[in-house]
Design a protein around this nucleic acid. Structure first.
Length: 231
DNA sequence: CTACCGATCCCCT
DNA sequence: GGGGATCGGTAGA
């Protein structure tokens, strides 16, 4: 029996997928593993929710007004990371897609933790303290809350994926397909039929025109409790 | 349960 | 100087 039955049989095939159009790439990223290897612990999880973003024709994309210092990675080589900060406190991770020079990327919106769940909870607490979102709740209270976070909430939502995997600006432009990279993508060891995928409008893009906001460019694995917005 | 709203900072129609 | 590919605490039904 083949080791993989989900279609992406090998890293070269994954690289080829990411080098192509963003919508198939977004679907193909579902089910893959996101890995943070800090030399001490190996945090990993299954990608269960993503959003596709395009270039100048996509009113919701950071690339809608062309290349800037902030979005330069979107125009770079596929398979690399595009990391940006929003609202002064959240880091979001994208996988760059398309040919070099073409702007497109896939936002990782939710991950199901597989290994080092406690390290992810700890990383969540680090962010909570760093952003000082613990005015009313005392630090001890915040620590207790973080420790009690259900597994399927730890990396649910793009900001929480960033926190749980300690995504930082230095990850911007890094090669996510490098097997030795500190932040990387890996093939899922899971064998079986391809999971059912659902699609819908992207989240938080109301500022873009009606046409862009209506595009069903958000994809998720049906039934995953880690999907954001499904509290 | 839903809905609002403040936090906070980098980057830019 | 304004706004954002978010989050979570709080208020109120």
């Amino acid at each position: 029996m083949k080791a993989r039955e989900r279609g992406l049989g090998s890293p070269p095939i994954l690289a080829g997928l990411l080098a192509g159009p963003v919508l198939p790439a977004a679907r193909g990223l579902l089910g893959l593993l996101l890995v943070r290897d800090d030399g001490v612990t190996l945090r990993s999880g299954r990608i269960v929710e993503v959003e596709a973003y395009g270039g100048p024709d996509d009113g919701a994309s950071h690339a809608r007004h062309g290349r800037t210092p902030r979005n330069a990675s979107m125009f770079g080589p596929s398979g690399h990371g595009y990391v940006y900060g929003v609202y002064g406190m959240h880091m979001c991770l994208n996988v760059v897609c398309g040919a070099d020079g073409v702007a497109s990327a896939v936002l990782i919106r939710a991950v199901e933790p597989l290994t080092s769940l406690d390290a992810m909870r700890e990383a969540r607490l680090v962010r909570a303290i760093a952003t000082r979102r613990i005015d009313r709740a005392t630090p001890a209270r915040a620590a207790a809350r973080t420790a009690e976070l259900p597994a399927d909430r730890v990396a649910s939502g793009p900001g929480n994926v960033g926190a749980a995997f300690s995504v930082q600006r230095s990850d911007d432009g890094s090669d996510l397909l490098d097997p030795a990279g500190a932040l990387r993508l890996e093939m899922s060891p899971r064998v079986g039929p391809a999971p059912a995928v659902a699609a819908g409008p992207r989240i938080g893009v109301g500022f873009s025109g009606a046409e862009s906001a209506a595009r069903p460019w958000r994809f998720w694995i049906t039934g995953s409790a880690a999907r954001s917005g499904s509290r």
